[in-house]
Design a protein around this nucleic acid. Structure first.
Lengths: 199, 199
DNA sequence: AATGAAAGAATGAACGTTCATTTTATAACG
DNA sequence: CGTTATAAAATGAACGTTCATTCTTTCATT
C-alpha cells in the first residue's frame, strides 16, 4: 500500500536529463553509454529504465528540452527598446553566457536531426516557432517605423537567425575569434541592414 | 615476387573515404560500423585495415578531406567581379549545389570537433585558412574602393562566414525556407553592409 | 614459387536491455 | 504509536547482440 510519488518521478527524469547533457556533450549521443549516463545521474543502469523506456527515448526527451530552452532564451531578445540594441544585447548574451557544453550539445542535436526523423521534427518545430516569433517582432517594429519599410520580415528573420547560429558555432570552431570586435561589426551590420533608408 | 602497387593503394583509400561519406551521412560517425563502411566500399571488413589502421583513422582522414573540399569550394567565391554579386553567386552555389549528405556530414565533423582534439585541429586549421583568404579578399577590395573604407576586414570576414554557415545549416533545419527570397534579402544585406558610405 | 591483395570467420570487449533481488517508504491496522 | 504488509524504488549481475579488430585462409599476379 504505497502511492507512486509523482514528484519524485519528475525529479528523477530531470536528473537523468541533466546528467545526459554532460555525457552527451562529452561523448556524443551514440558513443555515450547507458552506464555512463547512469553513473553521471548517480543511479544504477537498470533504474534508468523506470524513467525512460530506451536510450533513444532519452535522446529524444533531451533534444526536446534542449530546443525549448534555446527557443526560450531567444524570446528574451524580442523584448527590447530599439531593435538593433536589443538584438545586440541578446547576441552578446547568447555568445557569452552559453556554455561550451550547451553549444556543443546543440550541434549534436542538429546533426542527429539530419538522420533521426523524431529529432528532426522536434528541431523543425522549435526552429519554426523561433522564426515566427522573430518575424512577428520585425513586422511589429516595421509598423512602428523602427526598421525600414521595404524589409521583408520573413526573409530577414531567416537571414538574421542564420547569423546568430553561425556566430554561435564559430565560437567553437575558432575560439581565438575576437568577440568584442565582431559584436562591434555586428552593430554596424544590423544598423545598416535594418535601419538605413532604401538606396 | 610481386611489387606493391602504390596507385592501387591510393585508389582504395579514396574508395573507402567515398564510401564512408555515405555511411557517415546516414548514420553518424559512431553509429556507423566498419562492416557498413566495408559493404559500401565493396570490400571485406578485414581489408579496410590494410588501408587504415583503425576506424578513428578513417574518421580523421575523412574529416581532413571534407574540410579541404569545403575550403576549396569557398575559394572560388573569392574570384568575382564585384564583391556583392560574387558573394551572392557563391552563396547560391553553396546552397543549391551542396547535397544534403555533404551538409549533414559537415555538421557531423563540426560536432565531432567539439570532443575529438584531432578533428578539432583539422577544423580549426581549415576554418582559419578560409577566414584568412576571405579577409584578404575583403582587404583587397577595400584598397580598390569596392567596399567602404571603415570596414574591419577581419571582423567582417567572421560575420559573413557566419552568415554562410548559418544559411547552410538552415537548409537542413527548415527545408521549407524560400531560397529565392532569402538570396534576394542577402543581396540587400551585403550591399548595405559592404558598400554604403559611413552613416 | 613467392608475395601482394582480399576475404570472411573468429575473438573478446562493450553495449543496450532485462530481471531476480534487495531496500525503502508508507498505508492500514491493532 | 508501533508493527506489519505491500508495493515503489533501486540495484547490479546476466543476456544476447553488435562492434572493432585480428587471424587464417584463399585468390591473383608476376
Amino acid at each position: 500500500m504505497r502511492k507512486t510519488n509523482a514528484g519524485l518521478h519528475a525529479d528523477r527524469r530531470a536528473r537523468i536529463l541533466a546528467a545526459a547533457e554532460q555525457v552527451f556533450a562529452a561523448q556524443g549521443f551514440h558513443k555515450a553509454s547507458m552506464q555512463d549516463i547512469a553513473a553521471a545521474a548517480g543511479m544504477s543502469p537498470g533504474n534508468l529504465y523506470r524513467y525512460f523506456p530506451s536510450k533513444n527515448a532519452i535522446i529524444q526527451a533531451f533534444a526536446e528540452a534542449e530546443r525549448e530552452e534555446s527557443a526560450a532564451s531567444f524570446a528574451d531578445a524580442a523584448a527590447a527598446d530599439t531593435m538593433v540594441e536589443g538584438l545586440l544585447a541578446a547576441t552578446r548574451g547568447f555568445l557569452v553566457e552559453q556554455t561550451r557544453d550547451s553549444i556543443a550539445v546543440g550541434l549534436e542535436v542538429v546533426a542527429e536531426a539530419t538522420r533521426n526523423p523524431a529529432i528532426s521534427a522536434i528541431v523543425e518545430a522549435a526552429e519554426s516557432a523561433v522564426h515566427e516569433d522573430f518575424r512577428r517582432v520585425l513586422a511589429g517594429a516595421q509598423q512602428l517605423g523602427r526598421v525600414r519599410q521595404d524589409l521583408d520580415p520573413d526573409a530577414a528573420a531567416t537571414l538574421l537567425l542564420a547569423v546568430f547560429d553561425g556566430l554561435l558555432a564559430r565560437r567553437l570552431l575558432r575560439p581565438s575569434m575576437d568577440l568584442a570586435s565582431v559584436i562591434g561589426e555586428l552593430r554596424e551590420l544590423l544598423g545598416r541592414y535594418l535601419e538605413r533608408p532604401p538606396r
